[in-house]
Design a protein around this nucleic acid. Sequence first.
DNA 1: TTGAAAGCGCTACCAA
DNA 2: TTGGTAGCGCTTTCAA
Lengths: 346, 346
Amino acid sequence: MIDPAEATVDGRPTPTLEEVAREAGVSRSTVSRVINDLPGVSARAREAVNRAIERLRYVPNEAARSLVTRRTNSIALVVSEPGDRVFGDPFFAGVLRGIHAGLAGSKRQLVLMLAGDDAGDEGEALENYLCSGHVDGALVVSMHGSDPLPGRLATAGVPVVAGGRPLGGAGVPYVDADNFTGGLLAARHLVSGGRRRIATIAGPEDMAVGIDRLVGWRRGLSEADLPTDAVVHSDFSVDGGAAAMAELLRRHPGIDGVFAAADIIAVGALRELTRQGRRVPEDVAVVGFDDSVFATSVTPALTTVRQPVEEFGRTLTWRLLAQLAGERHLPPSILLPTELVVRGSA
Amino acid sequence: MIDPAEATVDGRPTPTLEEVAREAGVSRSTVSRVINDLPGVSARAREAVNRAIERLRYVPNEAARSLVTRRTNSIALVVSEPGDRVFGDPFFAGVLRGIHAGLAGSKRQLVLMLAGDDAGDEGEALENYLCSGHVDGALVVSMHGSDPLPGRLATAGVPVVAGGRPLGGAGVPYVDADNFTGGLLAARHLVSGGRRRIATIAGPEDMAVGIDRLVGWRRGLSEADLPTDAVVHSDFSVDGGAAAMAELLRRHPGIDGVFAAADIIAVGALRELTRQGRRVPEDVAVVGFDDSVFATSVTPALTTVRQPVEEFGRTLTWRLLAQLAGERHLPPSILLPTELVVRGSA
DNA sequence: TTGAAAGCGCTACCAA
DNA sequence: TTGGTAGCGCTTTCAA
């Protein structure tokens, strides 16, 4: 086992602030001031220190630093997804991009953490990690059921923002897309296209995103006095979507329209419809959700509900950073707009 | 601004080891021993400490801990991708799953870092972060050109393993798929299917993955005395693949077979071929690479070269952990096997 | 089996 | 504008 205390650079032990001070002929305090860009240092001293830093290839020890400042300059992105096919979904890709963009210029690092399948041991390890001062705050996304994590973190004093409305109101601020309106728009579009027997492949029952889009869809059909009984739930995967579509066709053969709660689900639905010889959109119209890369990579291209994915990530980050900066009067929740994008499938 | 030094749990300041010791009626040393599972603690003392920890909801401060141990229990995954569409690619999803799996049970956390577009400021910030003791080691993937980062980290004493062969041999160990053989298999399959005018949409010119698959493809065609001049490069995106396909058809209208260096590229190629009225596989056979979710979500399903994506991630992790554990005689490089999966497109 | 005490490398306060 | 100094919370000898 390598002894980490023997860590070296080019064979020499890693330099400390003390040595930089000696090399520059000043005190530790002065070196510290230079490193942290604090005022009250003469140009001469500053230059001497910078030269010494350069010569010794000095890099401050973050552990020591954060031990005293109580800050780590990193924030966590916790993806609490039971399955681990999280990153296959372009939705996450977009959110991640947004978070990254939101973090740019903040000098904070992103720490990604996947909360494994079950609670069990891992869940606790995760909570410990987050509570033990590794991060200044946390973003929690893709929560299922009434996940206790956000609430726990908040209680433990770790600033948290949830991505997606937490079920059971965990009492933490959150950012979400306006999923209800999205579902509503999808339903209305199908209705106005003359469809009368409209089904939906809803998202997971234990996620707000699954519920809210479903409720919006229901509202849209009710407005037109159409039945809302053709509902099947699916996870966010192509195969899940295909299976759900098969189930739907079995139970309601007369379907002429489907709202899939995600493009990735719609892709599976499309595959199954084609397999069973139904034409899209002639026989069955399909509306997706997300306006992800999937929407334009299938034939016909998907009519879908666009949600501002990257903005989702940016907003999430902004909200957390604002909280960390101690800003007052922050909105407890933020809803981002969704809009319909009409293409070939409906 | 919230003063982090005032961090509290339920209004009380976060407890320290000192307070646990007082609460349990033992010394700090004993508490430390219990926390770290060290021998030489009486059952009675151990129990008292555990109760105190429970009561106070004590969580060790990692900064303090790693200041003395010089270990952080986290490793970095550095994705040095100039563009930021990294996570749209299912390849990363799989690798990430593998890494996560490989880390399970190691008590180490994964820190994901995206190395922004340019070197500039950000590159340095990244290097500083990694060198300042935030992580015990780093995994660097998706390198372009002869990225100096892995070499720099290694020089600075940070253990590194590269995912994908580093161009210009950075002198760090690496794990990669056998891309050469993959390209070779793809070419041979097209040849044996009777195709005579075979093109390739290669990956980026500045990545080993782009080069190695191309070289393998060339070898396969050379074996059959076929020309190897129909080459266009593309990034790993659907649109890039479509554009490359268009370019290829313009330059070589007589093409009857294409090897796309990634499924995501093949999807774009398929779209363009269809748009131009060429039937797949009748007019043009298409072979992809990855065997990702894209392969089966298009029509016809892609014949493709499978690479063991998750194993890639697991192996990467294993290699780094072994190195951290001080194991000797570790292989400097590991090549994972690739194999052909025949479906409808070729 | 236990406890006392010496730091780990840094920041922040106070005095000069 | 500077330097001295007291910790931050923990691990790790060394003695008892």
